[in-house]
């Protein structure tokens, strides 16, 4: 078959809402697009464990500590589902980690902000997981089969993440004046980074077009961001907290909230490595990866020895 015929057949298959599976023929650019998007998604899940991990030893109660541990463990699991999905496209786990360490693969810029007080853990669950799940609900319908299945599993697990965050915010917002101040401070610092998680405006996002045509992404960045804003603003009102945007207003005619412009300079600065915690996040990941090398080597040696023993037993 000619390449053009193959491409047309591929597009028809996608337009019919069929899923692409690992061994199916796919255009090289589709494969690259999926590898880039899925591996960056995986890195985000794993790097995202750091800002929350910062509070495990200082959680205010044993209950809060157990919940936070379970939540962070889920995020590690999400990373593993996604790495496996990316591996089906022919890239190894090692290569993905190398790309992360060399700065060739990115992760969500939101995880480069620090967690300064306990209310930040509430704000992350409520806003960061809230934004992530808005994106992930849409991605359940992605055209790449293994990615879609990972999203289904992740969305099921995410439902508790946002609730536990909102529970912390509710307690803080209804607590002492000092707790209330911390809750507002956390919202002030996390609101805009959460909106940035959806990425640049679609007319400034060169990759959105291919992603949408191939149905790797099912909705544009701006549409998803709007969905998140519309459901989150009333939740802030319920807490009696103020969204840090003087231009925020309800538009009766469109049925949507309107917001001020995102600081895109900050977005580009943080994504290109110059946020408050970029270096710390990467150094931590590298150090832990290197410190764990002996475990992987020992496990490999053990498995080799086991195999040899089983062989001699079988012969004897």
């Amino acid at each position: 078959m000619e390449l053009q015929e193959k491409l047309d057949a591929f597009q028809q298959y996608i337009d019919a809402e069929e899923k692409i599976e690992p061994k199916d023929w796919m255009p090289d650019e589709y494969r690259r697009h999926c590898i880039r998007q899925i591996s960056q998604h995986a890195h985000s899940e794993v790097i995202g464990m750091q800002p929350e991990g910062n509070w495990i030893t200082r959680a205010p109660t044993l209950r809060a500590k157990k919940i936070l541990l379970a939540k962070i463990q889920d995020e590690g699991g999400h990373g593993l589902y996604l790495y496996s999905a990316a591996e089906t496209l022919g890239i190894s786990r090692d290569e993905m980690i190398r790309q992360l360490h060399e700065g060739k693969a990115k992760y969500s810029s939101v995880f480069n902000y620090p967690t300064l007080n306990w209310a930040d853990i509430g704000a992350i669950g409520w806003l960061v997981d809230g934004a992530a799940v808005t994106n992930q609900l849409s991605l359940r319908r992605t055209s790449y089969g293994p990615y879609s299945r990972a999203m289904l599993r992740i969305c099921n697990e995410e439902s508790f993440h946002q609730r536990q965050g909102y529970e912390i915010m509710t307690k803080m917002a209804n607590g002492t004046p000092e707790q209330r101040r911390m809750a507002q401070d956390a919202l002030d610092r996390w609101w805009w980074p959460a909106l940035m998680m959806f990425g640049p405006h679609d007319n400034n996002s060169p990759r959105t077009y291919n992603g949408i045509v191939w149905k790797i992404k099912r909705a544009g960045n701006d549409e998803l961001r709007q969905r998140f804003i519309d459901k989150t603003v009333p939740q802030a009102e319920f807490l009696g907290l103020k969204i840090p945007d003087p231009q925020l207003q309800w538009n009766e005619a469109t049925g949507h909230y309107e917001t001020g412009e995102i600081n895109w300079d900050e977005f580009h600065r943080v994504i290109s490595g110059d946020g408050p915690c970029n270096r710390q996040r990467m150094e931590h990941h590298k150090r832990v990866h290197e410190e764990g090398a002996w475990v992987r080597e020992a496990a490999e040696a053990f498995a080799r020895r086991r195999k040899a023993e089983n062989l001699t037993e079988a012969i004897a």
Binding site: L80, Y81, S84, E87, S92, R93, D94, R149, A150, R153, A293, R296, E297, A299, E300, F302, A303, R306
Partner: peptide
């Protein structure tokens, strides 16, 4: 060469009596 061990496919049974279904994959050494 991957240092994460070989790839395994995982099948789970949700309730006794039900069929095993593919859940996903992972790396492990044995």
């Amino acid at each position: 060469t991957d240092s994460q061990g070989p790839l395994w496919e995982v099948f789970t049974q949700k309730k006794s009596g039900q069929p095993y279904q593919h859940a996903g994959s992972l790396h492990a050494f044995d």
